[in-house]
Each structure stands twice: as structure tokens, then as C-alpha cells.
Design a protein around this nucleic acid. Structure first.
Lengths: 233, 233
DNA sequence: TGCCTATAATGAACTTCATTCATTATATTT
DNA sequence: AAATATAATGAATGAAGTTCATTATAGGCA
């Protein structure tokens, strides 16, 4: 008696639909298990295909990861420009960019980890779509700073790139423990602290007045508060 | 005719010597190929042992990596305290710490990458020896800042941890492109720039010095902002 | 000196995955 | 209804990490 393993019913979908299914499954499994501990078989099962089928649409496992992250990144950055256009004042705009990055990490630690660990370190990162998305995104931060310099609010004698690296580097370092699942962090407070430290620096300031900011600075801060208020609905 | 594969001559060394050999081979191969692209067979060959022998001394491949990095880290940090004791002044001491970190990355990009990518992201990182080494090392930076605060040179109203994260985060972000093998960076200049930016901040300073707008001008600018706001619908 | 014993070292077997590809099934076109 | 293009399958392949029963050796001991 020869027993034949019954072949699974084959459902033929459109290319687009299959790709969408596989990427959705990929995102889920990668989010749950990371990259190395996520077997392709898990993804295939969740996407209702057989492992081999994944290779019709993706070059390899890493290619799938890259495209998953890419699509996620795109959706995430979709509305930032619109949001930003409603925010006035260098400090507020800078804070928004920092806040946004912190919030993304807080909301999607697993995918951020994947991004940091497997995409950005790869030799091919600068040829990736994510690289360009990121580039355009952080360029916005550079523009905000340039604008601040133009208005005479910020120093023009420091490298813009260094400032950007300081902001994003600080944010990332601050969140490492959270990304390892060890501690939580307060998005709002961290955003406040980072923007304050970047703008004011570590050195004490001798402005003539014995303690605290001088009169003009206090007035300017008051105006920024007004600015922030008028933006709220 | 039965052919027997000749067994390789077995050389019996002391535990310490074998471990040293394997770790030396591991460091070399990891440095050349990274973690995932470094087969254990390469390491075994270079260490003059068979693959299975590695498991007598290390739990698994990752454990070997951790111990390789650990030993490297120890040697690297051996003399920093002595060096630092010869440097006076908050700014100079801070610069030394930053410079040192930059130089390490510049000298050993591959091992640093391994450390950043595979050790620090692991769930078990905070139980690692490297974690503690790093902790003690960066504590030195915190101490320098505390000392600066005590002497009235630095602000005491910002989180020390945040400052530390800003420094090391900035350094790392600045060196990502170099770590990917895309661009070089100037250790000395970067150290100067980072320490300057951390200490002075991004905002312009009105210290009564001739340069920069006077109080009246600044008030006028603030009023113009308000004007601009109220004009918008 | 020559056995004894602890243990260092070996190498084959096992396992888990990623990846390939010849075969089969299905939707669409003719 | 047959032909055709191509989506999908599943078995086979191979690479790499890991395990373990077996074998060989160095150092201690009679």
C-alpha cells in the first residue's frame, strides 16, 4: 500500500496580494522574534504560502526584512511634513522632530531595533530606500537649524551635521535600555530635556544677572509659549 | 578494500593555552568577517582545533564572541585612568574621554561594530562583563561633569546621564559612515567639535559682548513674531 | 620505568534553516 | 475547449551550529 501525502490546495492570488500577505506576515514575525530567530517557515505559514514561494517575490530573507522595514518607514514618515508645517518657532519645531523620533521608538521598539541592528549596519545600507527616506527626514532637522541660524537665534559656527548627530545620537543612546526591554522612558520629558541641552549646552552662562536667564531671553521664551498656544486647536 | 581516513595528530595543550588560541583565532576571524559571516570552521582551523573542541571551552558561538570582545575591551581600557590623572581642567578631561572613544572606533572599526551590533543589542547585555566595564568607564565621564558642576563651571540642572548619552551618542552617530566603510573622519577635529558643542550649546549667547543684537532689537523681533502670528487666519 | 587515570581532542552524526528547482495546478487568453 | 503563461508547491540541497560517544595523551603514581 503506497500512501500519498495529499497536496495542499493551491490558491492563486495576484502578485500584489501575495506580496502584501508575505510582508504583513514578515512584519509580524520579525516584530515578535527579531531577525535571526524568525524562521522563514513561520512567515510562510502565517502568510499561507510555502517557504519556497517567498523566493518568487524576494531575493532572500534579508531582502524581505529590508522591504518590510521600508514600507513601515514610509507609512511612519507620511505625515510629518504636514504636522511640522503647523508648528512655529525654532525650539518648538526642533522639539517636534525629537519628540517624534522618541515616540516612534517607544511605539515600535522591535522594528526600530531591527532597523538599527540589521539595516543601518549593513554594507548596502546607503543604497537602501530606508537610507534615502531617513536622509530626507533628518534633512528637515537641518533645515530647522539653518532657519534658526538665519533668524539669529542659533550659532552659525557649528557643523549642522554634528548637531543632527548629537540630537539623534542622544535620543538613541537614551533609549537603548528600553530597546533591550529593561526600562521605560518618558517621551515628553526626554524630548524637553534633549532640546534644552542641545540649545543651551552644558556650560553655565554669565549674562550679567545673578541667576537665571536675562530679561530678553525670558521675554523670548514667553513669546514662544504664546506661539505654541496659538497652534493648539 | 576498506580505506580508513587517517586521524589527525592530537596535540594536547593546557586549558589556558587552548582558550587563548581559540580566542585569538576568534578575534581575527570576527574582525575580518563579522559575526554571521564567520563560520566556526574558520576559527577552528586558525586555532588548530576541530570545530567540536570549541564547545569544550565556550557554550556557543555567541559566547565566544562575547568573551573575545570582553578581553579586547579590558586591554583597551587598562590605562585610561592613569592617562586621565595627568590631565587637568574640565574641558581637557572631557575632551580626552571623547577623543579616546573616537580613536578606539578609528583603530578598531570592525570590533566596535561587533560590540555595537551584537553585544549591546542582546537581551543579556546588562549581565555581560562588557556592560560593567563600559559602566565603569563612562562613570568617569559622569565624574568629570560632576566635578565641573562642583567647581561652578557647568550647569547642575541637567541630568548627568543625558549628557553622557549625548556625548557618546553623538560620537557614534558621527562615525556610522566610517563604520560602514564609506568615509573617514578626523579624530582630533571631531573631538574638538563635540566638546565645544556639548559645552556651549547651539543657542547664541548674549553676554553683553559687542557682537549680537541688543535687547531692543531682540524685543522688536519678538514682537514681529507675534505680528506674523496674528496675521495668519 | 611503565601502568593508570583524568580529561583534552576528535570526528561523525544531528538539527535547523535558508535556498533552489523541477513539477504541478490554475487563471487567462485564443 | 484547448493552449499558454505563470503562480505555487514540496522535495532536495547544502551550509553551519551543536552534540556526544569514542579515542588519545600527559602527568601522576607505584
Amino acid at each position: 500500500m503506497t500512501s500519498v501525502t495529499p497536496r495542499r490546495p493551491v490558491s492563486r492570488l495576484s502578485r500584489e496580494r501575495r506580496i502584501a500577505d508575505i510582508m504583513a506576515a514578515g512584519r509580524e514575525v520579525f516584530r515578535e522574534k527579531g531577525y535571526e530567530d524568525a524562521p522563514l517557515s513561520d512567515i510562510a505559514e502565517k502568510a499561507n504560502v510555502v517557504e519556497g514561494s517567498i523566493y518568487r517575490y524576494f531575493d532572500n530573507k534579508r531582502d524581505l526584512l529590508v522591504k518590510v522595514i521600508e514600507v513601515w518607514y514610509e507609512g511612519m514618515l507620511a505625515d510629518y511634513q504636514e504636522q511640522l508645517s503647523g508648528i512655529r518657532g525654532t525650539r518648538n519645531r526642533l522639539r517636534y522632530m525629537i519628540w517624534r523620533h522618541l515616540k516612534t521608538i517607544h511605539d515600535e521598539p522591535a522594528l526600530c531595533n531591527l532597523m538599527f541592528q540589521f539595516l543601518r549596519s549593513g554594507k548596502d545600507y546607503s543604497k537602501t530606500g530606508v537610507f534615502n527616506l531617513n536622509r530626507n527626514y533628518t534633512r528637515q532637522t537641518l533645515d530647522i537649524i539653518s532657519e534658526g541660524v538665519r533668524k539669529g537665534e542659533l550659532r552659525g559656527d557649528v557643523s549642522l551635521r554634528l548637531v543632527r548627530d548629537m540630537i539623534y545620537g542622544c535620543v538613541e543612546h537614551t533609549t537603548w535600555a528600553y530597546l533591550r526591554g529593561e526600562a521605560d522612558f518618558d517621551v515628553e520629558k526626554t524630548a524637553d530635556d534633549v532640546v534644552e541641552l542641545v540649545l543651551s549646552g552644558l556650560q553655565v552662562r554669565y549674562t550679567g544677572s545673578p541667576t537665571g536667564p536675562d530679561i530678553a531671553t525670558r521675554l523670548e521664551n514667553a513669546v514662544e509659549k504664546l506661539e505654541a498656544m496659538t497652534e493648539k486647536p
